[in-house]
Design a binder for these strands. Structure first.
Lengths: 207, 207
DNA sequence: TAGATTGTTAATCGATTAACAATC
DNA sequence: TAGATTGTTAATCGATTAACAATC
């Protein structure tokens, strides 16, 4: 139930399972199997079962998994049976797109503040948010007890801002800046850099 | 030199090495070591050396790696010593942000056309591009011999568009839509879904 | 030369898969 | 009951690490 240590690679697949199950639920599927889920995601059924078994027993032999029940369980495991307030740092084009994105809330996240350091942006809107000066960033994050930040600044600004975010109490950073940042061990960082994915694919393309 | 088969996980790290090396070069570093590169990226020096050794011998014992030389070699290996024309499908907020992103060209990619199916968007601008009707998408992609597409549409439209892109000759898709898509074996797909990363991190956060 | 760092081998570690008893 | 599918074990497979000869 409360596993001692689950491999990180297993944890990283649970959100994928949750996403696929949510699609199944939206399509009115009430029951699924490790086979069906695996086919859909390109994993073996054995892997699906093994991964889920790290956290408990969620299925019924001969039947499979109840979609709604498994969704609830995975949401609880990932702690997205609640909504996490997050701060967005960087109000460029990408920051605006992220601020306007409607897909966070029903998956457990809500942007509640947006920061930038450009004087002409401060006070203007990014989606439903008034852009605030990064000068008040630490204070605001601390006051609201925010633990998650998304960083959509240029690479050159990322390391300094990450350090300031950590200092303000941030424990998880989703970094859109195309660079590696260094943070203390208790802080988690995930990266999104589209070019890494593109360069990965061109390796397999013929010229 | 021309390795038979390199594990996918090794290939996926080469773009990271290239990115870090490019930062070093920008900072005027002429020589680096597997130790330094590893420290910077959070990998062991042994892994860096082992990964690079899959493709050839690029270093000098006692000295390390020439940054510029290694950059050239990795660019060649990844086939980003050329610029790849790409098509962008989906001109919403995210599509606009991607169309305006200045970080593609010097890393081997160039968007050359943008498509959407919304009548009020067709003919207007997304960054420097005039948005074209998806009705002419296959024809345009075929005519220009484009092999790479970025998909920034809602999830519901992704599978159908992916099939059409493949039919038009696309061999690599970077899918920003939060869903898994199914394509023939000869087509590669990479995914970007920020929520998967966020849900991964919340597993490790305390409530 | 002495010191440093590569490229590579072998050992270790960890993840995936196959198989099947349990059981719905 | 018969058929189906889980949860789990053991075997396989593959990736990472440690160690060191080679050599710059």
């Amino acid at each position: 139930m409360s596993p001692d240590h689950v491999p990180e690679i297993v944890v990283s697949r649970i959100p994928l399972y949750l996403r696929a199950l949510s699609e199944m639920k939206a399509a009115q599927r009430e029951i699924t199997s490790s086979q069906e889920l695996g086919d859909r995601l390109g994993f073996s059924s054995a892997q699906i079962r093994k991964d889920l078994s790290q956290f408990g027993e969620f299925g019924k032999q001969g039947t499979g998994y109840n979609v709604s029940f498994l969704i609830e369980q995975l949401q609880r495991i990932l702690k997205v049976d609640q909504v996490w307030d997050t701060a967005l740092v960087g109000a460029g084009d990408l920051g605006h797109a992220v601020a306007n994105y409607g897909g966070f809330l029903h998956r457990g996240f809500r942007i509640v503040m947006v920061f930038d350091n450009a004087p002409h942006k401060i006070g203007s809107q990014a989606g439903p948010f008034t852009i605030q000066d990064t000068a008040v960033m630490e204070e605001q994050i601390r006051r609201h007890g925010i633990k998650i930040a998304m960083l959509t600044t240029p690479a050159a600004a990322a390391q300094d801002l990450a350090a300031r975010l950590v200092n303000a109490g941030i424990e998880a950073i989703l970094c859109y800046a195309p660079t590696s940042i260094s943070v203390p061990d208790h802080v988690r960082v995930e990266y999104i850099d589209p070019v890494l994915h593109l360069q990965n694919m061109t390796y397999y393309l013929s010229r």
